[in-house]
Design a protein around this nucleic acid. Sequence first.
DNA 1: GCTTATTTTGACCAACTGGTAAAACCCACG
DNA 2: CGTGGGTTTTACCAGTTGGTCAAAATAAGC
Lengths: 205, 205
Amino acid sequence: MQQPARTTTRIQRKNTAVILEAALEVFSAHGFRGATVDQIAQAAGLSKPNLLYYFPSKEAIHTALLDGLMETWLDPLRALDEDGDPLAEILGYVRRKLEMSRDYPRESRLFANEIIQGAPRIGPALSGELKQLVDEKAEIIHRWIADGKIAPVNPHHLIFSIWALTQHYADFDVQVHAVLGGPEIDPYPEAGAYLDTLFTRMLTP
Amino acid sequence: MQQPARTTTRIQRKNTAVILEAALEVFSAHGFRGATVDQIAQAAGLSKPNLLYYFPSKEAIHTALLDGLMETWLDPLRALDEDGDPLAEILGYVRRKLEMSRDYPRESRLFANEIIQGAPRIGPALSGELKQLVDEKAEIIHRWIADGKIAPVNPHHLIFSIWALTQHYADFDVQVHAVLGGPEIDPYPEAGAYLDTLFTRMLTP
DNA sequence: GCTTATTTTGACCAACTGGTAAAACCCACG
DNA sequence: CGTGGGTTTTACCAGTTGGTCAAAATAAGC
C-alpha cells in the first residue's frame, strides 16, 4: 500500500517544471549518456542533491520527459481527419509537423537521440502506441487512394517521408544552416513552400 | 622538425583497421560520449592500453573515423553529372544514397549523432567542403530547371530532402521496423519504389 | 641466435559521475 | 511565535572513465 499522494506544493510544481525544462535543454543537446546531472542541475539553478530530491535518478528525469512528450508529438498525426479533403489533410499534417520542428527543435532532437541509439527507453511505445496510430492512419490513406482521391503511394512510407522531411530541419539544423550559409538564415519559409509543392505534385491524382 | 614517419608495420596496419571497425560499431551505437574506450578495445579484441598505443586518445579515434568517412559519404553527390539526363541523374543519386543507408547504416548513424549534437567536431567541414559541393550541384540543378528539363523546385531543399528521406531509413531504423511490425521486414525494396515515384512525380516538368 | 625496435600487459591514477546521509534551513500554519 | 513539515546544503562515497608508465613479451633484422 502506498501513502496517499500528499498535496504537491507550489515549490514542488515550480521546481519540477524548471528541472524538466533544463533537462530538455541538456538531454537534447548531448544525449542521455552525454548529459550529466550536474549540468542539468546548474541549468535549473539548483544543486545536484536538490535536483535529486525531486527526481530519484537521472533516468527518471529522462523518462518523465519522454513520456510527457510522446503525447504532444503524436497530436498532429491524430488530427488527420478521414472526412476532410485528402490532399488538404496531408498538407496540413506536413505543415503542423514542420511547425513543430521550428517551434520545438529540442523535443525533436530528444527523440532523435533516443531512436538513433536504438530506442532503449521507449522501444515499447514505438511498437505499441505509435504503430497502432500509424496503422490506423495508413488505412485511411489507403482508402483515399482506393477512392481515387489521391495518387497511389505506399501509405506507411508516405508517413515516414513526412517525418523524415520535417524533422530533418530540427535534427540536422546545424547542417542546414552550414550549407545555406549562416545561422541568420531562416530555412522554414522556403522549406514550407518546398514541401507543399512536393506533396502536392506527388499526391495529385 | 618531425622524425620522418617510420614505415608502418604489418601489425600496425591490421590493428588500426580493427580498431576503426570496432570504433565505428561502438560510436555509431552509443554516440561519442556514450562510448567508452574499454568497449571499443574489447570489440577490437585488444586491451585498453594497447588500443591507446595506436591512437593517442578516444577523440583521435573518433576524428580519424569521421575524416575517413566524409569522403565516401559525399561520393554519391559528386557523381551527379551535369551532362546526364536530369531526372535519371537525380533518381540515380537517390538510389545510391538509399543503398548507402542500407549497406552502411553505422556510418550514417555516426554522422547523425555528430550533427544532432551540434557537429562539435566536424562543423568546419560542413560549412567548407560540404557547402561548396552542395552549392555547386545546386547550380547544376538550377540550370536544368532554367532549361525546362525538370519542374521548378528549390535546389538546396531538393538536396536536403534526398538526404532526409534516404538517411531516415538508416538513422531511424528501429522506428521504421517497429512501425512496420518486426525486424524481419526489409523496408528497402518498398522505400526504393516509393522514393522513385516521389521524385519522378515531383520533377517531371 | 642475438640484438634491437615494436608491441602488449598489469598496475596504477586523477578526474568525474550518479547518488546518499544527515544536518541545517525555511516557511506555512495553528 | 514556535513547531513540524517540506526544502536545501554540506560533506561524502563508490564506481567508472580516459589516460599513463615501466616492465615484460614478442617480432624483425642481421
